[in-house]
Amino acid sequence: MSKEWPLWEIFIRGQHGLSHRHVGSLHAPDAETAIMNARDVYTRRNEGVSIWVVEARHITATAPGDKGPIFEPSESKIYRHPTFYDIPEDVGHM
């Protein structure tokens, strides 16, 4: 088996002046690619404006947050949001 790409921890700052928060991890060969991957993986719904990446093995102690990331409504990909679909009330909860 060939060598696996290192694991990176991803921190993203939402748009309202919040601090960076841990949103998850991903694999990338280097830091530059990790940032691009983070953009593609973790900001598909416009969740952030600033990204930090840290190679996981450089983190000494971690206590990831427990509330999950903040989701800002996406401006151009509205179809990702459930309210885009008009489901009649008779159908019930979906």
Partner: peptide
């Protein structure tokens, strides 16, 4: 070839279709 790339390519395609 790798999940991260799968997701990135889909983003490119989505932008182009938009």
């Amino acid at each position: 070839p790798v999940l991260e790339e799968d997701i990135a390519l889909a983003n490119t395609a989505l932008d182009l279709l938009g």
